[in-house]
């Protein structure tokens, strides 16, 4: 049995990368807010938040890359140029692959933008 099926006939794969982006965003912002609200009780340094954000960012980026690779495969590794607008199974599949690939690229950049403040901010705002 293959770990990853050769073909996925589902619309859900389209949303994988944006979902990762959304979850990453919430983890970063909610995590930092909770840390700063509870910092006295926690007794940890702010570097915990920054490295935590770094780790979830790497995980999110790898997951998006994985999703992007699957999308690329679904698109046929670029062997077919868009537009894929024939009413056929083949074109529907290629179209979805291409759209997923573009969403992966967008989410990849968005995740990096979300994490960038952690490179600058060194402390909770008083």
């Amino acid at each position: 049995m293959r770990l990853i099926p050769k073909e996925v006939e589902s619309l859900w794969t389209l949303f994988t990368a944006p979902t990762i982006w959304a979850v990453h965003f919430l983890v970063c912002y909610v995590g930092a807010a909770v840390f700063c609200a509870k910092r006295n009780a926690l007794g940890l340094d702010f570097i915990t938040v920054r490295s935590g954000i770094g780790i979830v960012t790497v995980i999110a980026l790898l997951a998006i890359l994985g999703s992007g690779w699957l999308a690329w495969r679904q698109w046929g590794f670029g062997t077919h140029e868009p537009p894929h607008d024939e009413p056929s199974h083949h074109d529907r599949n290629r179209f979805q692959g291409f759209a997923t690939l573009l969403l992966c690229a967008l989410s990849f950049v968005a995740v990096i933008f979300t994490a960038m403040p952690a490179a600058i901010i060194t402390e909770c705002n008083p």
């Binding site: 990096i112 933008f113 960038m116 600058i120 060194t122 008083p126």
Partner: peptide, 18 residues
């Protein structure tokens, strides 16, 4: 990306929380 980096790099000057 450049604008965001530039804007963030101004933060310590604009909001010197330390």
């Amino acid at each position: 990306t450049l604008l965001l980096a530039y804007g963030l790099s101004l933060m310590p000057k604009l909001r010197p929380w330390t």
